[in-house]
Design a protein around this nucleic acid. Structure first.
Length: 274
DNA sequence: AAAAGCCCCTGGATGC
DNA sequence: TGCATCCAGGGGCTTT
């Protein structure tokens, strides 16, 4: 579910509740993708100081140590008063009871994870975050820096975007959508993009993500922020999930191809191969 | 170093 | 209605 916008919306929401809270109890369900890396009881008494994001990872900074949280494909975080929290269910796998409310991770597929590390510099964290590419919305992401990084990659642009080691946060939906906006064929080799193409892609990625964040993360999928549901799609996808339907720009039927076990959607006319 | 496959797990949609 | 099959928003690990 969560691409960068959903994770960022989650982060902003948690920022309003979590910092300053003290952990009163920890509850865990079935194993997630990776073990927590410490005894859960050891977290009791620690204080959450900040909530940061790197790519699709959330970092809960504690007064001692850090919790690295990833939502995987199906993870959702919810924060609420104990009284308003639904009963613990079979897909609830992590919960922090704090002085400022309850934070709970629900994740049916369990591709998500919560990992503890002594610090953000710890080897575990480096292993997870060390290889990540630039933040698309940060100042350091410019048409030049993006072009330089893409110039090192010969694989299809769609797969390079998805890999996360050039730019982070662009998942399967937004990759297709950004390439459509930039009018770039998803199978074009990354190192063959022209300067104008790179510039259009840079802009498209930032626009698409920025809009999605502003819309509360519910642009292209149903999404519930930690405070609760905020509803339905607010924008329609231009190409994602629309195989066979007419392109919203030119009417050509949208095509679907498989790239590295993932679906890619595009308009063969608007995104002509060069 | 980079790229291609595989795999983790569960639920929902679709087809017979 | 029941059962099999396919697909899903991620990403680390292993192998080429």
């Amino acid at each position: 579910m969560p691409e960068l916008p959903e994770v960022e919306v989650t982060r902003r929401s948690l920022l309003g509740h979590l910092p300053g809270s003290r952990i009163l109890a920890v509850r865990m369900g079935k194993p997630l993708r990776w073990p927590l890396g410490m005894a859960p009881e050891g977290l009791v008494g620690r204080q959450v100081q900040d909530v940061r994001r790197r790519g699709k990872y959330l970092l809960l900074d504690l007064d001692q140590g850090v919790l690295v949280v990833h939502l995987g494909m199906s993870g959702r975080l919810r924060m609420d008063d104990r009284a308003d929290m639904p009963p613990w269910g079979p897909h609830d796998h992590f919960e922090l009871d704090t002085t400022q409310g309850v934070l709970r991770l629900n994740d049916p597929r369990r591709f998500g994870a919560v990992v503890y590390a002594e610090s953000a510099q710890a080897p575990v964290v480096q292993k997870l975050l060390g290889h990540l590419g630039m933040e698309p919305l940060a100042d350091g992401c410019t048409p030049e820096s993006l072009g330089n990084a893409l110039g090192q990659r010969r694989a299809a642009i769609k797969q390079v975007l998805l890999s996360g080691d050039v730019v982070v946060g662009v998942g399967n939906i937004y990759a297709s959508e950004a390439l459509f906006r930039a009018r770039i064929h998803p199978e074009q080799h990354a190192d063959r993009l022209t300067r104008p193409q790179v510039r259009r892609l840079w802009e498209a990625i930032r626009d698409v993500l920025q809009h999605a964040i502003e819309a509360g993360g519910s642009t292209l999928r149903d999404f519930a922020s930690p405070e609760g549901r905020n509803g339905h799609f607010q924008l329609e996808a231009m190409v994602y999930g629309r195989e066979g339907e007419p392109c919203r720009v030119c009417g050509t039927p949208i095509r679907m191809v498989r790239q590295g076990q993932r679906s890619t959607y595009f308009c063969a006319l608007c995104q002509r191969r060069r």
